[in-house]
């Protein structure tokens, strides 16, 4: 990792390298972007049926806080557990299964809880959403289980007796 340079405007990339100099074409994006942002705030504040600004800010802040302080820490924690508990050969299928599970729950939670169901309009939200999400997740995890079996078989076919060395991905390789 390169140490941070002195210039105040320069940060580090995700890889830890100094960020490159800004593109000379950035203003071609800034200008329409800033106009759109300004137009959006103008509309929010002046539209006849626009929101109470404080409630909009609060709702938006809650969304960000829920994401940054709850959703991502949970995802990171689960990822750490997977990395530490599961044998290497099972990690990738588990990661894909967990990504799919998390997304299904995030996209489907409002349907599953069902507060919008109304006897007045039975054709709205007509499905057993919890059941459908469960079926989707069952299909996902069966597929991941199959993938895991394939990985185990593949790892065993590369056993030390055949390859002469241990390879990462072996199911029995200790951490």
């Amino acid at each position: 990792m390169t140490s941070a340079p002195e210039a105040g405007s320069t940060g580090l990339t995700l890889s830890g390298d100094p960020e490159p100099a800004p593109s000379p074409y950035r203003w071609a994006w800034y200008l329409p972007g800033l106009v759109a942002v300004g137009w959006g705030f103008y509309g929010l504040l002046t539209a006849p049926m626009g929101p109470d600004p404080l409630q909009w800010v609060l709702f938006t802040a809650l969304g960000v806080a829920g994401h940054d302080l709850v959703l991502v820490p949970v995802a990171v924690g689960v990822g750490l557990l997977v990395a530490r508990i599961l044998p290497k050969v099972l990690r990738a299928p588990a990661q894909v299964g967990l990504i799919g599970t998390g997304i299904a729950l995030v996209a489907g939670f409002a349907y599953i809880l069902g507060p919008g169901v109304s006897a007045d309009v039975p054709s709205a939200l007509p499905f057993n959403y919890a059941g459908r999400v469960a079926v989707l997740l069952a299909v996902l995890w069966v597929a991941m289980a199959g993938w895991a079996v394939l990985r185990i078989v593949r790892a065993r076919s590369r056993s030390p007796s055949r390859s002469g060395s241990r390879r990462a991905g072996d199911a029995d390789q200790p951490e």
């Binding site: 800034y30 929010l44 539209a47």
Partner: peptide
Amino acid sequence: PFFFTTTHYWTAWIAIGAILVHVGSKLA
């Protein structure tokens, strides 16, 4: 706590504008 249609519409302008600004700042 707001009228969805109006708020979703105007916030869309903020979101797309902020994306454009972000792309500009991260072009390199």
